[in-house]
Amino acid sequence: MTKPQKTARNIVIALIAILVAGWMAQAWLFPPETKIGYVTAKPRIGHLADTVLASGTITASKLVSVGAQVSGQITALHVDLGDRIKEGDMIAEIDPSTQQNDLLDAEAALANITAQLAAKQAELRQAQLDYTRQKKMRALDASPQEDFDAAEATLAVTKAEITALKAQIDQAKIALDTAQIDLGYTEIRAPMDGTVVALAVKEGQTVNAAQSTPTIIKLAQLDTMTVEAEISEADVIRVHEGQPVSFTILGDRTTKYESTLRAIEPAPDGIEDDDDNTDDDAVYYNGLFDIDNPDHRLRVWMTAEVIITLNDVDNALIVPSAALIGPDTNGNYSVRVLDEKGDAIEKPVTVGLNTNIDAQIINGISETDDVVIGATSGATASSQSVRRGPGGMF
């Protein structure tokens, strides 16, 4: 290769190197503008509800502990677990021997005092005659004053003794009534219609009612159940009687039971045990509502997953709450939507119900708008539609 050819080649190589270096410098110092991509969502028409979630326990609408009011051995038990019984049905019998003897003692004591009263009334008649006779004789000065005074005192004492005996008779009648009642307590009967949900004793067992009433059975009315929903102190101020509630149970999450909140207990659980709540445990208040249970599918102590509806709207135009811009100082909101060129423009809107997850738009946009809920510069789209402006990948 001649020297002029080498020189020309070197010049070409140098020019190429300069062009490459210039292009790289331009790319480094002046990168091309990247078009922002937007994550959007279409507004939808649907039902929107603001709710409070709570965990609840299902209990019987009435749950009664039927106990023994007298001590003794259970000689007969007439019910079994799960039995449905009627008010007045015999539940159990306690050996009545002690109570029968007490009744006989009370009857004898009343008869004894009654006989004493009859004898004392006879003495009263004699004392009255003696007093009358002594009074006449004393008027004629035919007997000493001492005899009249003694007759008068005897009459007064006899009347007082009769008054005391009458009071003792009243006490004896009360004792007799108590003995008859105690004898009746040896037959334990159902105080209401219900289902036997617990048996606390067995036939042949001895119960002692001296200090507290021992439980024989627990009787529950299961046709109507009560749900005790634990509402946190953060939510309870927004909850009130009459709000609609629904719940599901752990064994069947597809069946929804619906009712109305009946009451909210004014104090949290445990107040009867700890009046000065100084620990750091969360505070919950029980919200109460009832539910029909004709087939007894709901059982005592089941767990209920409760939803309390604070407010709801049907046929609402709904957008994600994340799309809202605001409120401003005047309490106004706006959202960004894409125009025909794919650019985001801001539109003022009127917001109705806002659950902080979804929000109702009363006016300002329509179902056809693409509402911006976020921006992205990457190429990976989310599960919602991604639109990019001109020059983008899509």
Rank of each mutant, 00 (worst) to 15 (best):
Q168F: 00
T195M: 13
L250S: 15
G352F: 04
V351P: 05
V245N: 01
Y284V: 01
T350D: 09
V349T: 03
L29A: 03
R189N: 12
T186R: 08
D295E: 13
A119D: 15
T303A: 12
Q180K: 15
P294E: 06
T57D: 02
D370I: 01
V306C: 00
V39C: 03
T40K: 00
S143K: 10
L140F: 10
K166P: 00
L129S: 14
S366R: 02
L219W: 04
V371L: 03
G184A: 12
N293E: 07
E241Y: 01
D358I: 05
N354F: 07
V79D: 08
S382M: 12
M302P: 06
T114Y: 04
A190F: 05
R133S: 02
T114D: 08
V351F: 03
E161T: 04
P268E: 00
F247G: 00
R9S: 13
T57G: 00
V64C: 05
A156I: 12
L310A: 02
V64S: 12
E146K: 15
T254C: 05
A229M: 02
N293C: 08
G184D: 08
L103R: 15
P4T: 03
P96A: 03
G46L: 03
A108T: 13
T114E: 11
L317T: 11
G194N: 09
M225L: 08
K62L: 12
E233L: 02
L48H: 04
I365V: 12
S383T: 12
N112T: 14
I74C: 05
G184V: 05
A92H: 02
K166T: 01
T59Q: 14
L199D: 05
V313M: 03
N293I: 11
G287H: 01
V196K: 11
W301H: 14
G37E: 02
G37V: 00
I16C: 12
A27K: 13
I271Y: 05
V349R: 01
Y333I: 04
N356V: 00
G389M: 09
T51D: 04
V64K: 08
E203H: 10
H240Y: 10
P43R: 07
I362M: 01
A323Y: 01
Q180S: 12
R299F: 06
R125M: 09
F148R: 06
I181W: 12
V371A: 01
E228W: 07
A322V: 09
